[in-house]
Design a protein around this nucleic acid. Structure first.
Lengths: 339, 339
DNA sequence: TGGCCCAGCTTATCCGGTTCAGTCAGCGTC
DNA sequence: GACGCTGACTGAACCGGATAAGCTGGGCCA
C-alpha cells in the first residue's frame, strides 16, 4: 500500500502542492470551495503529512521528549510515572504531538540524550522529572536552549519553566492531622535525599515539628523501593522509643512498612498509624487501606504538557504551582493506643 | 546555540556533503584518513544528523511505536508495562532508535494511530500488546504493511511476527504444585476474558483440572484492577464450598485478594493459598509475601524490540516463544488446613 | 477603455540529509 | 603513449512538505 503524499492530493484535486498545503493548514490563499474539495480528497485517500518532511521544512519535530532516570525496577513499581505519562499523552495526542520516551541510567546519560535530541531535532521540547538540588541538567538545557518544563520545585530550575505541587503545605497538613489525633512521636521515611522535593518535605517536616514541639520527630532516608522502605520501618519500630505514626514518601514504601508492622505483631492503626504519599489504587488494596496524600497525577502531567507546548510556541517560561495534595484518611490512621 | 548540519562539517573538513555522509555512515567512497578527519570534526562540533532529514531521504523514521490500549487507571498500577518499556528501550537506545508512545482508548483509536503513524512515516514499526481473540488490529496492520511484532499468542497473529510466553505450561505447573500441596478446590480469578492469553490460560486450567479430577475448579472473570479482583475474591470466599487456593491473573488482583481474605478473618496461607501471576516487587512487599509466577519482563521487551528491528530490516516474520514463567514459592502457599 | 488591485492560484526555493552519476588524478598494462 | 581501471571525491537530484514570490484574470474605478 503506497503512502499518499501531498502531490497525490494535489494531482487528484487538479491544483498545485502549494495550494494543498495552504488548504490543509488553514492558511489564506485558496478559496473556501477549493479548500473543502482538497480536504475531502485528503480524507478520502487517507493522507497525513509526513512528519519528517514537515519537521524538515517547518523546523518543528511534532514531538516532545521525556527521559526517565530511574532504575528499571523502581520505574515499574511506582504508578506515578505511568499516571504522569498518560496525562501528558492525553494532552499531546489531542494536538497530534508524539511523545518520545527514553529510559536513562543517570544524569550524564540524560544530558547526552538531550544533546542528541537537540542535534537530531527529534523533539521540540522536553519534560524534566525528579529535580535534584544543584541539578546539572538545568544548565545543560539552558545552554542548548531546548524548550523545557521542569516538573518539580519551586526553586532550582534556573531560567526554565517549571511546575510543582506545594509539598510543604501537604506535609504540614499531614503532621497537624496526626497531632490532632494525639500522636507525638512521628517519623518520616523519606525518598532519595538529593531530590529537590525530598529536601522541601524534609525542611517542612522539621519546621512543623519544631513549631508543634514534637521533639521525637525523626526522618530516615530511603530510596523509594519497598525493600528499603521495609528495612527503614523495621529499624524505626525496633527502637526503644518507637514512633506511633510514620509518614512515607511514596505508596510502595508505605505498603512495605505496613507489612513490616504486621510481621512484627503490631496492629495498624492501633499501634502504628501510617500515611502514604502518592495515593494510587494500591493504597486501597491493602488491609487496612492506607491514609494517603493524593492528587490528580494525570492532570499534573497534562498541565505540564500544556505548559511545555506554550514554551515551544515561544511564550515566556512560566513558574506555576499546581494543585496541592490532599489527605484522604482511611483505615491506617487513628489515635495512638494509650501505653 | 546553532545546531550543526552536515554542511558545517563538510565546510570545516574542506570536502563535500556527500563525502561527509559516506564517512559518517561507514560507506566506501572516502579514504580512511579523510574518514577519520571527518569523524573527528563531527565529534568536535557535536554534530548529530537531523532525524527529519534522514527520515525524509532514507525513508526510515528511526523510531518504533507502542500504543497502549488500557484505561489510565490500570496502566499506572500494573508494573508490567513499565518493565516491558524499560526492556524495549534498552534495546532501542543501544541502536539510537527512539520509542514513540501513545495511550489510546480502544482498538479503533489504536488502529487510527497506526494509520496516522504509517501515513506520517513517524515510526518504522510497532509493538502490539494485549492480543485479543479475533483482533481487528492484525488485519489493519497487515493491510498497511506496517512492520509489527505482536506480543502475545501463539495463534491469532495472522502473518505478523509474534512473541509469546507459554502460559499454558506455567498454569499447569502451578495447578500441579497446588495439588501436590493437597489442594482440591482451586479457583482462578482471570483477567479480561477477550484477551488471547486469558483464553489460553482458561483452556489450560480447564484441561489440567479435568486431568487431575478437580471437579470443584472454577474460573471467575475480572478486569485486572484490584477493585474487581477484591470483589471476585469476596464472592469466592463467601460461597459455601469456598476454594482453598486461588490463582490470580496478575499481581494487583492477588494483593487485593490477600487483603480481602485477611479482612474476612482468614489466615493466608493456612485457610487460603494465593498465587499471583506477574512477579513484581509488590509481591514481596505484602505480608505474607506472595508465591508468584514470574519471568524477566524487561528481557521480554528487549526480545520483542530486537525482533521488530529484524522485521523492519526486512527479515521474515518469526514466531518465537520466549521464556516460560516459573513459580517462586513464598509465604502465601501451603497445604490447606484440615477441616 | 485603460490601469490598478486583489483573491486565488502556480512556481520555485528551501530544509538537511542520502545517493547516484560523473569527474579526475594516478597507476598499471600492453 | 594510449588505454582502461580504480579509488577518492564532487555536484546535483531527490525525499515531501512549507512558504515566499510571481503570475493571472476579473472587478472596480477614474
Amino acid at each position: 500500500m503506497k503512502r499518499p503524499t501531498i502531490a497525490d492530493v494535489a494531482q487528484r484535486a487538479g491544483v498545485s502542492k502549494g495550494a494543498v498545503s495552504y488548504a490543509l493548514n488553514g492558511q489564506p490563499g485558496v478559496s473556501e470551495a477549493t479548500r473543502q474539495r482538497i480536504l475531502a480528497i485528503a480524507t478520502e485517500i487517507g493522507f497525513s503529512p509526513s512528519s519528517a518532511a514537515r519537521a524538515l521544512s517547518a523546523a518543528t519535530a511534532g514531538a516532545i521528549g521525556l527521559a526517565l532516570c530511574r532504575p528499571a525496577r523502581t520505574l515499574g513499581v511506582e504508578p506515578f510515572f505511568m499516571a504522569l505519562i498518560s496525562g501528558v499523552e492525553a494532552e499531546l495526542s489531542a494536538r497530534s504531538y508524539a511523545l518520545t520516551l527514553q529510559v536513562v541510567a543517570d544524569h550524564d546519560a540524560e544530558i547526552a540524550v538531550y544533546r542528541r535530541w537537540w542535534g537530531e531535532r527529534r523533539v521540540d521540547g522536553v519534560l524534566v522529572c525528579d529535580l535534584r538540588t544543584a541539578d546539572r541538567r538545568i544548565p545543560a538545557l539552558e545552554q542548548l536552549q531546548l524548550p523545557a518544563v521542569v516538573i518539580g520545585g519551586p526553586g532550582g530550575t534556573g531560567e526554565l519553566a517549571s511546575l510543582w505541587s506545594d509539598d510543604a503545605a501537604a506535609l504540614t497538613e499531614t503532621v497537624e492531622y496526626l497531632v490532632a489525633l494525639r500522636h507525638r512521636r512521628i517519623a518520616r521515611v523519606a525518598g532519595l535525599p538529593d531530590l529537590r522535593h525530598t529536601e522541601i518535605r524534609t525542611d517542612a517536616f522539621a519546621a512543623v515539628c519544631q513549631r508543634l514541639g514534637l521533639v521525637d520527630a525523626v526522618t530516615v532516608w530511603s530510596d523509594y523501593t519497598g525493600e528499603e522502605g521495609g528495612r527503614a520501618t523495621r529499624r524505626l519500630l525496633s527502637s526503644a522509643h518507637r514512633p506511633t505514626a510514620v509518614i512515607y514518601d511514596n505508596d510502595v514504601m508505605a505498603i512495605a512498612g505496613l507489612s513490616v508492622a504486621q510481621e512484627m505483631g503490631l496492629t495498624v492503626p492501633a499501634d502504628l498509624s501510617i500515611v502514604a504519599w502518592d495515593d494510587s489504587p494500591l493504597c486501597r488494596l491493602v488491609h487496612p487501606p492506607l491514609t494517603a496524600l493524593g492528587r490528580d497525577i494525570p492532570a499534573y502531567g497534562a498541565h505540564a504538557a500544556r505548559q511545555l507546548l506554550a514554551v515551544v510556541a515561544g511564550q515566556p517560561a512560566g513558574r506555576v504551582q499546581d494543585e496541592t495534595a490532599h489527605l484522604t484518611p482511611r483505615g491506617s490512621t487513628a489515635p495512638p493506643r494509650e501505653r
